[in-house]
Amino acid sequence: MGIPTLVAMLVAALAVIGVLSFREEYSLFVPGLLQGAVLTLQIAVLGSLLAVVMGVLAALARLYGPAPLRWLATVYVEIFRGTSALVQLFWLFFVLPQFGVTLDAFPVAVLALGLNVGAYGSEVVRGAIQSVPRGQWEASTALNMSRPQMLRRIILPQAFIAMIPPWGNLFIELLKSTALVSLITLSDLAFRAQQMNQTTLKTVPIFTLVLLMYLVMSLAITIVMRLLERRASLGLARGRAA
């Protein structure tokens, strides 16, 4: 699907939210839900940043690190990929205090979701690096580049393009997982919706708005990733047309 279509969907979703908020049975819920959406967005953005950092570090450690670092990265990936995000949230929020480490709910949410998605992301990064043809390594070796120079200048820029679509998937996964954070006392979008629904029973307006708000956020992510992809593959794509 092209970027214009995505933008049109985004604009349409925003327009529907705008139109609905002029109607009384909807407008009542908009401010509260927007507050929740802001929190959801904060957790999603910060969590995604953490996920990228962890994903890249873990992948590089597993591919090129010395043995102890390699093990550490493998342990991290397997634990955070192999247990559910919910359990991780509970652990960081309810279990760690038993060992004397107490964190606020917001940092725990960012940490748990970022680490969780970062573990998946490390496999994305690893796969993308390994998908760069061997000839690129060999040419860099023949030009006497060091390992870090090869990675930074030759391999990662090419791997980057292959990473963008799967990272887009992960960011959207992460956005949706933010619904879990209500279980550690945070009032995110999903939590506020449920709360409002319990007190007012206006199910249709509340969950219509919630659906649209999530859709706006995920469309925004998709559009940003598509733009990034287009930009990153500029040179390569231009050639393909020739």
């Binding site: 000839g135 060999e138 070796t141 023949a142 006497n144 030759i154 090419q158």
Partner: peptide, 16 residues
């Protein structure tokens, strides 16, 4: 190794 250069069958130019 700096004294040696190589040209490959499959070119291996940096596509980006």
């Amino acid at each position: 190794r700096g004294k040696i250069g190589m040209v490959f069958q499959s070119f291996n130019l940096f596509p980006h």
